[in-house]
Design a protein around this nucleic acid. Structure first.
Length: 363
DNA sequence: GACCCGTGGCT
DNA sequence: TAGCCAAGGGT
């Protein structure tokens, strides 16, 4: 991409960029928060979480001092919860190792948990003006088309694009430049049906010249869908409180609060006893719902259960009798919100993906 | 390189 | 519907 095209792209960005909340600040912490939230997550989804997060944790010190419970609760609904735990750990590391100030270079940022090559480059260039590239999915697509690279995504392709991105990045405005490439990918150079007629660098684009814009980037082989796992959960309610158990520190939905239960290869009453240390009488199936993760599917069944007594055995997990009114603000993943939704009113007004249906009556 | 890790919108 | 995809990182 020649200098004239790069100049056009930068001017296009400054004229046409979307007004996003993290573009109104120069605070490195706020920009870091936005970049981590934006990992594998759409802009429209991030905006309300970002604004709520900054009200709750307005600066790095506030985040570092927060309990993990609050951090996960604020992230609940965004997914990829390890991001929240890593961001929390990064804030604490900055307090401990950098006197509370985010390091200003990509190389140093890269050392913090949850900050990889992309996020380090993005924060260093946008917040600190360091002349470093950042390569995300948008940049891969845009660069592949401009350079006419017809190979599917791979480490070799990434290296090639890293080199190009390094050569392209503006010395004067690295942050604007990096955002310009991503903005182009997000709004014009889209995965399907790119709007080449509106592209400020169409004249410098190999794909456009050769008619390859619809076949670049090349498809990687599709993953085969996995069968749904049957999951059962129990809603045990006592005096306006629901019994929750905390997930283990690693794995799917790590550290999040769940209704007791799990894969239905183990009897539900036993799961409840082992996890929560209580014995219950199970009622009929009250609700069924499917939940789709990125790599697996749950076919869930919810049963009401009545508490019989507290077992003498230690519960296998941390437990919490959560007031029904507090469920909204708790660190509950979307799958649990689907099961609990509308039994006591809507949860935080969030849209729900998985469709749930009442179970057929027991009669 | 392969796999794990959420969610929601779109086709 | 089923698949695809979105400002990735860790192991």
């Amino acid at each position: 991409m020649d200098a004239a095209a790069r100049s056009r792209l930068l001017r296009w960005y400054r004229a046409k960029r979307r007004d996003l909340p993290w573009r109104r600040t120069k605070d490195a912490y706020a920009i870091l928060v936005s970049e981590v939230m934006l990992q594998q997550t759409r802009v429209e989804v991030v905006v309300p979480f970002y604004e709520r997060w900054l009200r709750r944790f307005p600066n790095l010190a506030a985040l570092a001092e927060a309990r993990e419970e609050e951090v996960l609760a604020a992230w609940a609904g965004l997914g990829y919860y390890r991001r929240a735990r890593n961001l929390h750990a990064a804030a604490q590391a900055v307090v401990a190792q950098h006197k509370g100030k985010l390091p200003a270079t990509a190389e140093a940022l890269r050392m913090l948990p949850g900050i990889g090559a992309y996020t380090a480059g993005a924060v260093a260039s946008i917040a600190f003006g360091e002349r470093v590239p950042c390569v995300d999915g948008n940049v891969v697509r845009v660069a592949s088309r401009i350079l006419g690279l017809r190979q599917p995504d791979s480490a070799a392709l990434r290296r090639r694009i890293e080199d190009a991105a390094t050569a392209w990045v503006s010395a004067r405005s690295p942050g604007d430049w990096n955002q310009a490439v991503m903005e182009l990918g997000a709004t014009v150079c889209s995965p399907r049906n790119p709007r080449c007629g509106e592209c400020p660098v169409a004249a410098a684009c190999v794909a456009k010249a050769k008619g390859w814009q619809d076949t670049i980037p090349a498809k990687t082989k599709a993953k085969t869908a996995v069968a749904a796992t049957a999951m059962r959960f129990a809603r045990i309610e006592q005096a306006g409180r629901v019994l929750l158990v905390r997930n283990p520190e690693t794995g799917l939905l790590a550290g999040m609060w769940m209704l007791p239960g799990g894969a239905s290869t183990t009897p539900l009453a036993r799961l409840v006893r082992e996890q929560a240390g209580v014995r219950v009488r199970l009622g009929p199936v009250e609700r069924e719902a499917r939940h789709l993760f990125s790599h697996r599917t749950w076919a869930m069944e919810l049963r009401r259960a009545t508490l019989l007594d507290v077992d003498h055995a230690q519960p296998g997990r941390r437990t919490w009798w959560c007031p029904v009114a507090d469920l909204d603000g708790a660190a509950l993943p979307a799958a649990m919100r689907v099961l609990l939704a509308d039994l006591d009113g809507p949860t935080r007004g969030r849209k729900r993906r998985a469709r749930s249906k009442p179970a057929p009556s027991a009669s």
